[in-house]
Simulated assay, not measured.
Amino acid sequence: MTDSVLRTVVRRETHSPRTAAMLVVVVVLVLAAVYAAVEIVLSLAGQQPLLVAPGAAFDALADLPSAVVPAALIAVGVVLAIIGLVVLALAVAPGRLSKHEMTWGDRAVVVDNGVVASAVAQHLATESGIARENVVVGVAHRTVDVTVRPPVGIPVDTDRLRQIVDDEVASYRLTPSVRTVVRVERPLDAGKEGVR
């Protein structure tokens, strides 16, 4: 498999398509077009409109600048511009799936963030001697967040835990790269605040 093909496959697996956003916009536009067509047909047939007759709608639109306060027109324009920018951002910006590219030898592997989180948690539990259920790991697009909740009375070296996590995450060679955050949370003991 060539590098360009591999890059394309990895990109497709780590980025979400904008199908849902496009589908919503298309459905809204189709519904607007169907409504306009129904109103035009009713008007041509001499029937009562569903909401407003096309002629009355065009007349109201033509009279809008003089009938409405300019501040209201500006506010409506700003709201429409914001909606347009959101739709444009959804169309242009790449969506992200909860996956990372991991380099494995000379190959790239797409791995789910949940798998990375589970592997980091298990490795940290094994290396530190802290029970697995006391280690919580979350993996986001740019961050690996580790929370360790050791039982009361068990001493924990936060710097050592951070080093274990940093070394393990670095060995995965994730793309995009992630930073690690390690916290130690102690349960409340005899009314004292937990140590972080």
Results as ranks from 00 to 15, higher is better:
96 R>A: 14
135 V>G: 04
81 A>M: 09
152 V>F: 05
14 T>G: 09
69 V>I: 00
69 V>L: 07
93 A>G: 05
101 E>Y: 01
17 P>Q: 15
33 A>T: 12
182 V>I: 08
96 R>G: 12
127 E>Q: 12
136 V>D: 13
59 D>I: 03
144 V>M: 05
132 R>E: 10
128 S>Q: 07
152 V>Y: 05
96 R>W: 10
21 A>V: 02
6 L>N: 10
85 L>N: 01
60 A>Y: 03
60 A>F: 06
94 P>D: 13
144 V>C: 08
49 P>I: 05
49 P>K: 02
11 R>V: 02
183 R>Q: 11
136 V>R: 08
6 L>F: 00
166 D>I: 04
90 L>G: 08
62 A>F: 04
37 A>I: 01
140 A>F: 10
44 L>W: 01
95 G>L: 08
20 A>Q: 14
22 M>T: 14
99 K>A: 10
25 V>H: 09
117 A>S: 07
91 A>T: 11
187 P>C: 00
65 P>N: 10
79 V>F: 04
27 V>G: 03
193 E>G: 09
98 S>A: 14
172 Y>D: 11
151 P>C: 06
156 V>H: 06
95 G>T: 09
16 S>T: 14
13 E>L: 11
53 A>F: 03
111 V>R: 08
94 P>I: 03
53 A>I: 00
120 V>E: 04
98 S>D: 13
10 V>D: 10
17 P>R: 11
89 A>C: 11
43 S>A: 12
38 V>E: 03
144 V>N: 08
176 P>D: 04
175 T>K: 14
65 P>I: 02
135 V>K: 09
100 H>V: 07
181 V>K: 04
138 G>K: 15
179 R>K: 15
194 G>V: 03
142 R>E: 11
163 Q>F: 00
152 V>P: 03
118 S>L: 01
174 L>W: 10
139 V>L: 02
51 L>Q: 04
81 A>H: 01
50 L>H: 01
158 T>I: 03
193 E>P: 13
156 V>Q: 05
14 T>Y: 06
146 V>A: 02
145 D>N: 13
139 V>I: 01
109 V>H: 04
7 R>A: 12
144 V>A: 05
99 K>H: 11
115 V>T: 13
37 A>G: 15
79 V>M: 08
139 V>W: 01
29 L>N: 04
123 H>S: 14
104 W>L: 08
62 A>L: 07
71 A>Q: 13
148 V>Q: 05
123 H>D: 15
155 P>D: 12
126 T>G: 13
116 V>I: 15
158 T>V: 02
39 E>H: 05
123 H>N: 13
173 R>Q: 14
133 E>M: 04
155 P>M: 05
116 V>W: 00
14 T>V: 14
77 G>M: 08
87 V>I: 09
78 V>I: 13
35 Y>I: 04
4 S>L: 11
